[in-house]
Design a protein around this nucleic acid. Sequence first.
DNA 1: CCCGGTTACTTGATCGCTATACTAACTCTC
DNA 2: GAGAGTTAGTATAGCGATCAAGTAACCGGG
Lengths: 354, 354
Amino acid sequence: MNVQGKPEKARNNGPGRRPPTMQDVADRAGVSIQTVSNLVNGREHLMAKATRERVAQAMAVLEYRPNMRARGLRAARTNEIGFLVVDDEAKFLADPTNGTAMAGAGEIIGQRGYGLLIQSAKLGDIDDGLFSPLLESRADGGILYLSGGREDREVYIRRIVELGRPFVLFGEERDDDLPAVIADNESGAHELATHLIEKGHRRIAFIAGRAAWPMIEQRHAGYRRALQEAGIEPAQELQLFRGRWDPIDGATMASSLLALRDPPTAIMAANDLLALGIFQAARGRGMQIPDDLAVTGFNDFDFAAFLEPSLTTVSLPVYEMGEAAATIVIDQIESVDGEAIRRFPVEVLIRDSA
Amino acid sequence: MNVQGKPEKARNNGPGRRPPTMQDVADRAGVSIQTVSNLVNGREHLMAKATRERVAQAMAVLEYRPNMRARGLRAARTNEIGFLVVDDEAKFLADPTNGTAMAGAGEIIGQRGYGLLIQSAKLGDIDDGLFSPLLESRADGGILYLSGGREDREVYIRRIVELGRPFVLFGEERDDDLPAVIADNESGAHELATHLIEKGHRRIAFIAGRAAWPMIEQRHAGYRRALQEAGIEPAQELQLFRGRWDPIDGATMASSLLALRDPPTAIMAANDLLALGIFQAARGRGMQIPDDLAVTGFNDFDFAAFLEPSLTTVSLPVYEMGEAAATIVIDQIESVDGEAIRRFPVEVLIRDSA
DNA sequence: CCCGGTTACTTGATCGCTATACTAACTCTC
DNA sequence: GAGAGTTAGTATAGCGATCAAGTAACCGGG
């Protein structure tokens, strides 16, 4: 079927009448355009009750909807919040954790009368594409989520600071008080590692994808701290950062760990997908989890509780974090007082795999 | 920390200089604003080479970025595509399948110079909130994805048709040639069921969440067709639609199926999450998959290949479908010829669970 | 050497809305 | 009953771009 074909085209282009403007409403109600504007913007106290009703009636009849482009141009705001995502391979949305964060942000953004504008870029593309919502006056503020890790992360952060517009960093805290929403990954990992140590494990491995960004580094740090506190020197060969966070990478890393002369008795994965791969590798070697090998994940994906054995992992309040991020940006935009850094606790879920 | 605090405020509000306008560029280059506009919009053949360079230079120095609000107002387009999502509980983005579709759409949208605007609504909220990107001139067109099922789906579809703006339906095909992107769920389910029948199964169950939308109904239809073709009358008690698509719902439905006097030897789940629950229920009863019970899923989530046993399921090209949806809408907006209905094949992945 | 055509621009109106300033009538107070 | 304050509006000027319609210079042909 051809979009250009007349029948389809006609249907999609509709009745062809242009949408009503404020002027149309004003004419119909017999008032000036400004009076309509006042009503639309909630300044109803500026007009008599009868006028208000007449205008409201006219708006209803004409099905008037304000043109946000025009409003934005004049009022220098768009009522749009940009969610700016950088990531190694544009897989961001395929991760339910990230999707949930975005859903939380979207909820608040919607409630407060804004729209959610998504802009993504691949890590390394340091043109200004990522910031176009801010640069091109399409959004009033932005939530910046840099997942994936490389040196150039700093470039992005410097850039958004320079832009001089309201923003909040998602998932990472800086030493310089930039608005941020973070979860206490460090103590989650610390608690997890401590749990393993209490179970008697001494050879505890930590695996993650090749690129580790701050959120992941914190998990790693929590792991190291727990071991050190227990007087265990975290062995270099037990800390692996390889691959792209696929389960298959988890399997590969687990295999090489288990092939060591002195293999670990527990493996902490920096996320649940990697843990899934560890399960597979362990099964392949006929090992029982948790008896032969303890495994922990991170993030508490849907499947975690349903694996056999169920996966011990850490749950992050991502939805709430998304909400908080949106709240911070909008508060800034509207000059409302509020916390600019929100730190969330995490929940360690001890299940059967460790 | 207080956002209103002077230092933070100052940082976030930046240097305070307003962004350069076309007029600024024009002044600096010693040309008229229209000449700048011509260059910005790729009509470089309208000016002398020297002028072009002077203007380009001025744009670079000032770091000029067009104000999309202003362009949108005058040119009656925003270069923004709305992704409108309706769903039972705003969980849409938490589903990696949906996230992947959106990522695919986002990729094309970005490539073609547009932005991606997400608007979601809960099924049943039939105000115009969902369509606000279109109604308020914030987007030039929309991708409409109605997941979750209820009678009022029709209302949404009628509404978007009425709006008379370019749109495409995601995941469902209508008898009336509306632009759409769909996957061949019916034949995927048919192939899956046929596979089970060939393996000797006769008592084959089908389970899904309470609300079944067209995509799910197609899976159900494929199941029924396969059974009928094999001369098996699909028993009513083997077709369950309960709960909210959580693994726990899958476990519950599987338990009640397995408690039947004549229990099924195979269960087809309408998605992988439900299948995960079936695995759990089967384990709870000491049953071996696939020997005591064959299980199939749908969607091929990340975890499917890594379960024990690995899950037989159907993979949909969701990323490509997202790309196709974006392509269709943008083609319509730009009056480019192209297919308005794109149908994608699915891939049945026979693994170990069935 | 004048005409039409091209090239290289400029000018002015306008998109739909909001901000600012203004008017006119009415009410209250001393 | 004059000045101040309140109420209920209107009038005008843009926001930053695009569109349609100019203009001015040059250029080749008869």
